[in-house]
Write a protein that binds this DNA or RNA. Structure first.
Length: 475
RNA sequence: UCCUCCUUAGCUCAGUUGGUUAGAGCAUCUGACUGUUAAUCAGAGGGUCGUUGGUUCAAGUCCAACAGGGGGAGCCA
């Protein structure tokens, strides 16, 4: 048995081959478009309907699984270069055309989301998931070739001090009748771990420990947020890439993030040409039905090259506020949230203006006010800002959030006190500052947001195999 | 969680100022045709108009609540 991908790449003309796959369409009682998932391309299998039994012909329906053997020849028709002249054909699995939901026609993304177990058999989702796989490989390739070690952060965590959002509780207690303390609170001492535990919202704190021993490390694993977020860019379960580097300051951190993103995008541009081309045309089709004003100026692969071929714009928070203050939409009071002054977080509309209108480029914002950022970010000499950085991308907003970490024990303790974080919970995290502390930095990159940007998919639920969102954990 | 829009055949959608028998394309079935490319041609079957309640002589159409979904916002990756 051979994959269609390898047959098309190295065609062995006039030889007998065997392939297995699923029927996309069956035309004229003669032409089977067979797809095996190895590539976007179907291979046309031509059957002689006068020789083939009527019973078999009837069973060649959209969605059926087939094993086909025959001679690989140059196609006699237009539209494809190769085809198989079928000698034997076996229906491995029937597909009742009356009931099979995926038809050879356009389906809405919403409908396919409800058929997540079958949607992979469409061109769009096949392309997206192959690109996703290639991106994941490129991530590992980049880090291993740049001296990073892959380490596995725990999925179950005992600290809820990370402050990255609502968490999912992990417990083996009977939810209907939990043991109570004399005070009437749930007694987690009797729970499996003897304390309250949750699914991780970030592997960063653990990654810091590993960076302070192995030098450069990264995690790439599932992350869980129990936020009631209903947007096209949020999931309750998503995959996050978190590198952490000893002896890196914020500038080195930003350099790394930029080079990393550019290199993984270059990898898919080089290795997923057909899938990207398909996704690009899909977007162009979609845009035809939109009003002119909403159409995107750049094609998908142009957008990717735009990111890989030029440096990201780096701007401090303070500079960004000045730009926004003087911007036309702010002066004309077009912003829903006018720029009040220094110190508040930027709204989506502000980030979008900077990225899509002002700079027309990916933007790295850094040196944010300390009050709006997490406790572990390193305080600058001005005492007001921290060495934080966010990378903003057109269309999807924040794709990276990172910082240089506070390495000074006293400063960190003071910050934790201010933000009411229990030192006892994070004793081990403080130990890292007690024993051989050093400047170090890292960031988190939302993998699905990267896949979204790369494939041009509008909704994050369409770039992860089985999306988990509020009120939805089907499959 | 808030704002807003949507829910009509298996799928995508049309359905007029409320009016009597709810339509189209694709898919399916029957037949014809056979080098097709979302094949073509002829015919057929297929509907609790999201659910519940209300207004009205009359509701797919108007109102309310609920459910599901989309888009935007917040939270963030």
């Amino acid at each position: 048995m051979t994959s269609i991908d390898s047959l098309l790449k190295e065609p062995r003309l006039s030889q007998d081959v065997t392939i297995c796959g699923w029927v996309r369409t069956f035309r004229s009682n003669r032409f089977i478009a067979l797809n095996d998932g190895s590539t976007l391309n179907n291979l046309q299998c031509v059957v002689d309907f006068e020789q083939m039994g009527e019973d078999t012909l009837r069973r060649i329906t959209t969605g059926a699984a087939l094993r086909v053997s025959g001679t690989l020849v140059e196609s006699q028709g237009r539209g494809q270069s190769l085809e198989i002249q079928v000698k034997t054909l076996e229906v491995l699995g029937d597909s009742d055309p009356e009931k099979y939901p995926i038809q050879p026609k356009k389906h809405s993304m919403e409908f396919l989301r409800e058929q997540a177990h079958l949607r992979i058999r469409t061109n769009t989702f096949g392309a997206v998931m192959r690109v996703r796989s290639a991106l994941a490989f490129a991530v590992h390739r980049y880090f291993t070739s740049h001296g990073f070690y892959y380490f596995h952060a725990p999925i179950i965590t005992g600290s809820d001090a990370e402050g990255a959002g609502e968490m999912f509780r992990v417990s083996t207690l009977d939810p209907r009748n939990p043991p109570l303390t004399p005070e009437g609170i749930i007694d987690y001492k009797q729970d499996f771990f003897g304390k309250e535990t949750n699914l991780t919202v970030s592997g960063q704190l653990e990654a810091e420990a590993y960076a302070m021993a192995l030098g450069k490390v990264y995690t790439f694993g599932p992350t869980f947020r129990a936020e009631n977020s209903n947007t096209s860019r949020h999931l309750a379960e998503f995959w996050m890439i978190e590198p952490e580097m000893a002896f890196y300051d914020l500038d080195a951190n930003m350099d790394l993030a930029e080079e990393f993103i550019q290199e993984v995008l270059r990898y898919v541009l080089d290795h997923c040409r057909e899938d990207l081309e398909f996704l690009e045309n899909r977007l162009l089709d979609e845009e035809k039905s939109k009003p002119q004003a909403e159409r995107s100026a750049m094609k998908l692969t142009d957008k990717l090259r735009f990111v890989t071929d030029q440096p990201f714009r780096r701007v401090t928070y303070t500079e960004a506020i000045d730009i926004l203050k003087q911007s036309a939409p702010n002066r004309k009071k077009k912003f829903q949230y006018p720029i009040e002054g220094w110190g508040t977080d930027l709204q989506s509309e502000h980030e979008r203006y900077l990225v899509e209108k002002h700079f027309e480029s990916p933007v790295i914002l850094f040196n944010y006010p300390a009050e709006i950022k997490a406790f572990y970010m390193r305080l600058n000499e001005d005492g007001k800002t921290v060495r934080a950085m966010d990378i903003l991308f057109p269309g999807i907003g924040e794709i990276v959030g990172g910082s240089q970490r506070e390495e000074r024990l006293e400063v960190l303790q003071q910050k934790m006190q201010q933000m009411d974080i229990d030192e006892k919970e994070l004793w081990w995290y403080l130990d890292l500052r007690r024993f051989g502390t050093a400047v170090h930095s890292g960031f988190g990159l939302g993998f699905e947001r990267l896949v979204q940007f790369t494939t041009g998919m509008g909704n994050i639920r369409d770039v992860i195999p089985f999306p988990r969102t509020p009120q939805n954990a089907e499959f």
